[in-house]
Amino acid sequence: MMTTARTIAFTLNGQQVSTMIEPHRNLVELLQRFDLFGSRESCGQGLCGCCTVLVDDVAVSGCLYFAVWVDGKSVTTVEHLDADGTLSPVQQAFIEAGAFQCGYCTPGFILMSHQLLKEHPNPSDDDIRHYLSGNLCRCGAYPEIIEAVKLAAKR
């Protein structure tokens, strides 16, 4: 089956970019073309959250999002959070709380925590679990992750 690649233009981590891409490729693949590997396809089903990306400031599963859909939109990845050289409060809190082990799921948890804290600056335990229920950590750092989110909320 032949398909046509199309040109898409979007904002990637604050910069205007454009590229040719075919409709069957997902957002994670698109980001890899820009050497961004913080969003990772793991479960491939939107359940583990390793592929989390912000599109127009809203978290999506990059593995379940067609790349062509970001045409005209703004895409933010974990690599952008310390663009000014300073870690975001969430990133800093994840370090202080020791909220990861292997680190593979960490960018996803951090980006989801960003959406959570934007919408609920003082989240309850239930809010934290609700927003992070779509992210899985096989190393089981959940208690530390909850602590990290609370720590970030205080700042």
């Binding site: 913080g38 990772r40 870690l87 370090i95 020791g98 680190g103």
Partner: peptide, 21 residues
């Protein structure tokens, strides 16, 4: 103390075989 690679992991820049091309 926090893991030495903590910053690389929270910024998504830690090196995994997955990244390699």
């Amino acid at each position: 103390l926090p893991r030495l690679e903590a910053r690389a992991k929270v910024t998504g820049r830690a090196e995994y075989t997955h990244n390699l091309r």
